[in-house]
């Protein structure tokens, strides 16, 4: 690791932690969402610096899309999303604080207590190639599982979130054309 890398890791790490803390201290939901975005984007940056450019950049890409969509839902479902009226949304603050502090302490003790093994092997020239070959080779089962999980999520989430089924759209006999929609789509109707 070069000095630049170390410096980058330090800065990104500090920013990630700051962003994380801000998520639960700010009032405005938009700011909350975007501090979470900043935090996770910094995590993606750290992954890049650690030698995984593909995964790092993909994390940044995905987090931006995800957080922007998240902002939409945040603002739709939260009361007072602009944070113009400060209010506490916590319950059992002390308990949570104790639990997470204990967890942190335990993790730190573990980190410094364990005698970690020495580094084995050398870094491959192209880490993107490494992950690709492994996902399409020895880890194929992982990839297939992830694929099915994603498919199930798509179907499940859509079913949960829609409140109009085909009987609402096409009538009881499914023969009503054009479909009874509040607004037309771009294809067909």
């Amino acid at each position: 690791m070069t000095t630049t890398d170390l410096l980058l890791l330090g800065v990104l790490g500090a920013l990630a932690l700051t962003g994380g803390v801000l998520v639960f201290t700010l009032d405005s939901m938009a700011r909350v969402t975007f501090s979470l975005l900043a935090s996770l984007a910094c995590a993606g940056g750290m992954v890049t610096v650690l030698g995984l450019p593909y995964l790092g950049v993909v994390i940044v890409l995905m987090m931006v899309m995800e957080m922007v969509i998240m902002a939409v839902f945040m603002i739709a479902y939260m009361m007072n999303p602009a944070g113009l009226m400060p209010m506490s949304m916590l319950h059992n603050k002390r308990g949570s604080l104790v639990i997470s502090a204990v967890a942190f302490a335990a993790l730190v003790v573990g980190i410094f207590g364990v005698s970690w093994p020495r580094r084995t092997g050398a870094r491959p020239k192209d880490t993107t190639f490494q992950v690709g070959m492994s996902l399409m080779g020895r880890q194929m089962l992982t990839m297939v599982t992830l694929g099915f999980v994603l498919l199930a999520t798509m179907v499940g989430a859509t079913v949960l979130a829609t409140h109009r089924g085909r009987y609402d759209r096409f009538g009881d006999g499914l023969d009503q054309r054009p479909a009874n929609d509040p607004a037309g789509g771009g294809v067909g109707r």
Binding site: G20, L107, I111
Partner: peptide, 9 residues
Amino acid sequence: AGLFCIGLF
């Protein structure tokens, strides 16, 4: 670990 515990809180 810090990130994880902030999230946990």
